[in-house]
């Protein structure tokens, strides 16, 4: 395993990001032969903004915008039982049936694949799409499920503990992709046992 980054590293700047977005939009319309029955579904929250951008971009290329929806996967997560700390659920906004649609799932970062698995389960509850494809801005590896993207903005080499951040102007930042060092791991104070000395004192 490599030592990893110590400082945040930018792997995509604003211009790279714009070019990638443009290429992804072209690839999507090429593979689907236009926008007929095409629906972009962004995975909340990072994928939602990206889906909106792709919709706009495809609209510019084809003159017609594909359908757009946003899906929240909180209720489909497979780690729910293990105790998420305070899951926050956002609204799902899909105001059309997915039956007969070619769906392109949109997410910012592809990591373990578990989010995409949950999103696919959620999708199926909104109807039966004819095809489901996946587009991500950054594939950072370390998959835990057999899931691969159909369209990728960038493939980044990362260690497991690093964080990949896709920043967008919708979030008040300049477009770009960053790899950040792992967050320092700290134990909650209450879990730490008292020092040995104190413990022996207490017994007396």
């Amino acid at each position: 395993m490599s030592a990893g980054v110590r400082e945040p590293v930018q792997v995509m700047n604003r211009r790279d990001f714009g070019r990638a977005l443009d290429r992804l939009a072209h690839e999507i319309v090429e593979r689907n032969q236009g926008v007929e029955n095409l629906a972009l579904i962004g995975i909340r929250t990072g994928g939602a903004f990206l889906a909106e951008r792709l919709q706009k971009q495809i609209g510019k290329i084809e003159g017609v915008k594909p359908l757009l929806g946003i899906i929240d996967i909180t209720l489909y997560r497979d780690d729910f039982a293990n105790g998420l700390s305070n899951p926050v659920m956002g609204p799902t906004e899909i105001d059309f049936s997915l039956a007969g649609k070619k769906v392109v799932l949109v997410d910012d970062v592809l990591f373990t694949g578990r989010t995409v698995r949950a999103a696919m389960d959620a999708l199926m509850d909104h109807g039966r799409p004819t095809r489901v494809q996946l587009v991500v801005m950054c594939d950072r590896g370390h998959r835990e499920l057999p899931i691969q993207p159909d369209y990728t903005g960038i493939v980044a080499q990362t260690t497991r503990s690093e964080n990949v951040k896709v920043r967008m102007k919708e979030l008040g930042e300049e477009d770009g992709v960053w790899i950040e060092p792992p967050r320092p791991r700290t134990l909650p104070v209450a879990v730490l046992p008292p020092p040995a000395k104190e413990r022996s004192k207490r017994k007396k």
């Binding site: 929240d72 909180t74 209720l75 489909y76 997560r77 729910f80 039982a81 926050v88 659920m89 956002g90 609204p91 799902t92 906004e93 049936s97 389960d121 959620a122 199926m124 509850d125 909104h126 109807g127």
Partner: peptide
Amino acid sequence: TAENFLELNSREIKKVPTLRGR
């Protein structure tokens, strides 16, 4: 959170797997 659950009513499948096995 409850507001977000209202959306379930308008779906084809009104069930989510969240508390499966509970």
